[in-house]
Nucleic acid binder design. Structure first.
Lengths: 111, 111
DNA sequence: ATCGAAAATCGACGATAATCGATTAATCTT
DNA sequence: AAGATTAATCGATTATCGTCGATTTTCGAT
């Protein structure tokens, strides 16, 4: 019904790819599933302790996840608390969306 | 209900990631959407002509997509015809699957 | 103002991945 | 058998990405 007809342009393909790239890494998957199981926000330090990779690495991955609004940040003092963005999880494109040509959600608009 | 409790192990995280990696590239997204719009199988030559990247590159990406059974091949003579694997499109994990801890479909079993 | 804690940023390194051109392999035609 | 066509493979190059340690920034406490 809202399936596009023309072949996907490069730009739209890149937008789709940027979504899938966000979950195309095992460490990020672990972080996301970690945040999902504890329903409560977690500080970076807690995530570092639970994930077994370095602090700068965790911070880097959290930034990537936050860029696509897959996680949300709230800062309190010197700490930063991250949590899953449920709204964004549901708007994340599926393989079927790609195949059926549903419009890709433009990366940063999702909250 | 089948949401796991423990934090995702590294192995399972890698399995998930391997799925998302398959669609984490703009060229592959273009190829997939191309195959999806023409409902009919396409030869590699047609895909090359329509995608604007080199023949060896297209062949490489098709192999990656075929490895996760996202596309299926059928060879006729010197040609190879690729088409979308609808069954695999639907079994492709979603972001919600990751968050809810649904078991990741093991990569190559999907047809 | 200084110190300490927490997270972000920086710079570097190694690994992975995308792309290309050239070559090889497979199959059809004549 | 020879040549032509199609796709896969190979080798090399380049670009991207994940990780780390070190540094910097931010903020609270003393």
């Amino acid at each position: 019904m809202n399936a596009k007809d023309g072949p996907l342009g490069r730009d739209e393909a890149e937008e789709y790819a940027s979504w899938f790239k966000a979950l195309a890494d095992a460490t990020r998957i672990q972080i996301v599933s970690l945040l999902a199981r504890r329903r409560a926000p977690m500080s970076v330090g807690e995530i570092v302790a639970a994930s077994g990779v370095g602090q700068s690495t965790v911070s880097h991955h959290l930034k990537i996840l936050a860029d696509v609004r897959f996680v949300l940040v709230e800062r309190q003092g010197t700490s930063a608390f991250y949590r899953i963005n449920d709204a964004c999880v549901t708007c994340f494109p599926t393989a079927a969306d790609v195949v059926m040509g549903n419009p890709a959600p433009e990366t940063p608009v999702c909250e």
